[in-house]
Design a protein around this nucleic acid. Structure first.
Lengths: 170, 170
DNA sequence: TGTTGATTGACAGTATACTTACGGTCTAGG
DNA sequence: CCTAGACCGTAAGTATACTGTCAATCAACA
């Protein structure tokens, strides 16, 4: 065999492609999350947003998107839905009329406490088919890969920078 | 410290959660794919659909969704867009009036040949930050995990079953 | 101080993902 | 033969993801 023969155009190449596997795994992960959390009417994205607001009360939408690395435009409607469910509230910032500050409501804080066990079951189930050692290996590599590819993403994670306005980091 | 203390509700737990990492990685993968394939006006999903139709000419939409494990409803609009771009054609099946058979057009076959190098560059870039040995480890574990979680997904992969109607497998 | 440039939130438009439902079609069983 | 159930495509409704644009606002600099 000379070097590489021209790649045959077949579906098998797709099955082994990283992008395809990441997509499949993400869909499986969402499916498991929704199944475990059915009783709570919260999506994975809404859950992450609630956690982030709980960790950083008074954050604004743009910084929130940096803290969880979710798309800024999409986050607008996510926030709307969370507000419609009365899990968060938006208050205008007195010193900057562009900004609206995000806070959990009592309902939001309550559902967050209640949903945690279901979320942890979901996270565990995603990796369950692997041997414990393999789970650690996979997670270690994934953390690395996501971190090293951070800038390749359209919405890079800015866990630290995002908090400067709150005087809690930097 | 007794056993596990109640998990603190902070964003750091999210950063380490499998579901969050899978989502981030999927978004990064799509971003890299779109960047490398910008010249071709094809999304990752559309690319996979084209490859599958190329591998299984005359497949119908429902079986196609099983072959690539994509949602059946979504696939309807994906097919519409591919048809609008003149990359595929749909012909009614004479022996079953419910079914529409999918075939690549000449344009579809051509763009598939042309886009392959860009797709391979994209797939390579996703894993590039890792050491070669780690790439293999990660892919091996991911293949396992996706396969073992197949039934947990809303649209399980049915690579074999889907072909029975074509008399090419089973 | 006054204008420029950056930032924020909002909106429009496209694409994917999933749920539910519905009409047309096929097939199996009675 | 004819109806019951399964199957195919399609559509409506919701949620996420990303692009691009816009007005209001702020900050910085001349």
């Amino acid at each position: 065999m000379p070097s590489k023969p021209a790649a045959p155009i077949t579906i098998d190449a797709v099955y082994a492609a990283p992008g395809y596997l990441f997509r499949r795994m993400q869909q499986i992960a969402v499916s498991i999350f929704m199944e475990e959390c059915r009783a709570f009417d919260l999506t994975p994205v809404q859950y992450a947003a609630l956690i982030a607001i709980h960790t950083h009360p008074g954050i604004d939408a743009t910084r929130l998107s940096a803290v969880i690395a979710f798309d800024r435009s999409t986050l607008g409607s996510v926030i709307e839905r969370l507000q419609a469910k009365d899990y968060i509230e938006r208050k205008p910032a007195p010193e900057d009329k562009r900004i609206k500050l995000l806070h959990l409501t009592k309902s939001g804080a309550a559902i967050l406490r209640e949903i945690i066990p279901a979320v942890e079951r979901a996270q565990a189930r995603m990796l369950e088919p692997l041997k414990p050692a393999d789970r650690k290996t996979l997670m270690g590599l994934l953390v690395q890969l996501v971190d090293l590819n951070n800038e390749a993403s359209r919405v890079p994670l800015r866990a630290e920078d995002a908090l400067e306005h709150l005087g809690k980091a930097g």
